[in-house]
Amino acid sequence: MKITICGGGALGSHVLYLSRSLSNARFGVIDNDRVETKNLAAQWFVKPMLGKNKATALKLQMANFFGCAIDASPVRLSKVNMQELLGSTDLVVDCFDNGASRQLIQDFVRETSTPCVHAGLAADGTFGAVRWDRDFVIDHEPVEGQATCEGGAFLPLIVQASVSLVEAIRTFQTERSETNWNIRPGRTEKLET
């Protein structure tokens, strides 16, 4: 199964790290952003990756730490390259941090009937959600460019949400079931929908 993670930031980097042992999965990651010092507190990047593209950095870390090969696409996802980047994907995992990119993904997966699971975090770090596309409402960031759960204080919630997202991927891979999750600090709830 080819699984493409869109966004290699707080959620995307941890999901990749936590999913590495899933069997029969080939991962790809798309991100055009670079690793900055502020990212080191809450995203899965080591210091030598500073300045590198996030997708490239994740590819290097997965190879160096675990001997895992992944596909890295260090580009911005757009309507122009969408088919090329997602056309052969069996599952899209949306970990982007902006509504416009999430909308691009939603339009594509609905048009092509590609399975897709989305995950997001509240700006104040009090809530996270994992939703399969048919039940997903896109939330646009209230103020463009505002802080996005970057501090280390949010790391526990980020990891909680990432674990739930990996579980959603695993159950889809093994049982073809689509599970939605609510995540609050210290508590993760699988929704009976």
Partner: peptide
């Protein structure tokens, strides 16, 4: 006012009122 109402396509009459989750 800024919360989102999630609706699900399953049989249950269920709503989830939650904060917005724009970040990933």
């Amino acid at each position: 006012a800024a919360h989102v109402v999630d609706r699900f396509q399953g049989a249950k009459n269920q709503f989830i009122v939650r904060p917005q989750v724009p970040f990933g």
